[in-house]
Design a binder for these strands. Structure first.
Lengths: 162, 162
DNA sequence: TATAAGCCGATCAAGTCTATCGGGTATCAC
DNA sequence: GTGATACCCGATAGACTTGATCGGCTTATA
């Protein structure tokens, strides 16, 4: 139906970030149950189960099972970066396989990687993206929501198209 | 089989950029036929037809039909940006629909867009990416391939993971 | 022991990506 | 004007991914 976006964050990653922010919001690191988070943020409960389990396996959150169970953050909100979460949920972020450190692969049909004229530009783009995503934490996101800043840079987004 | 990359450039876009660079390489804007480009760069010929047609419709290249036909660049290589090509071939680049100017859409389930804590971070990431991709032209890519520069920034890519 | 909550693997529908196919149409050489 | 060449264009198909659901198991509390 709708238009497809290429450089898109998955729904799963969005859910993951929402859930983590919900946990970060909980006072005193109090734990929350899946169904609570799911209902409050309109996330399919079973889907959220998978997501939180992934995050648990990667030591972002902890869980307690049983009747008094639930989830809580394992790391502090200012130690959890967006980049980290995205890599866990969506896999490598590099725009070309040959640019990834966590999953390097030669590009199909690329004969001389050292002189590839496409690679260099995307390497720059990737560096720029990664610098932002690896530099922003849940704590940053929580802060930004409270104090509304003026445009961060001179021209801001208005200079950009699409 | 392999690992999936999320923020990935499509094969189609890679073909498009290769083809455009091939046309930019041609001396005096001489035209090339599809099959020539396809063979030299290992691009499926019929697939490349579609791609070049798209680029023609968007006024990036011109074509001549018939026996002495072929393709040539319509704009000069320093007027064709990577971002432009990517938007034509892959569609909007924004990581969230609500960040796209060319195809704005409200994010599913996002209730208050002005206070969305996820949006802001991705807006920054997107700005950073777009600044690079909209700032690099085919001509840049051709230049960079010739003179091999030292690392552009201090630490360079080595500081980054994945 | 009953109940609540997380754990876990399998499966499914819809959509996307890559590529291919079969022909249609313009242009040039002769 | 006839044939060959090269671009134009819509339809289709297979493999894969994504988002989501299902059923049942395990652990812990009351």
């Amino acid at each position: 139906m709708g238009i497809r976006f290429r450089i898109m964050i998955s729904q799963k990653a969005k859910y993951a970030l929402q859930a983590l922010l919900a946990l970060a919001d909980a006072p005193d690191g109090e734990q929350l149950v899946i169904s609570e988070i799911a209902e409050r943020h309109n996330i399919p409960k079973k889907f959220l189960e998978q997501i939180l389990l992934d995050l648990k396996h990667r030591a972002i959150v902890v869980s307690r099972r049983g009747k008094a169970g639930g989830y809580a953050l394992l790391k502090s909100p200012d130690e959890i970066t967006f980049g980290e979460v995205l890599r866990i949920i969506d896999g490598p972020m590099a725009p070309l396989p040959c640019l990834s450190r966590m999953a390097y692969r030669r590009c199909a049909g690329c004969e001389d990687e050292t002189t590839c004229r496409i690679k260099r530009v995307f390497a720059e783009a990737y560096d720029a993206t990664a610098a932002v995503l690896d530099g922003r934490t849940l704590a940053d996101a929580m802060r930004e929501a409270r104090v509304k800043r003026p445009a961060r840079r001179g021209s801001g987004r208005d200079a950009l198209i699409a």
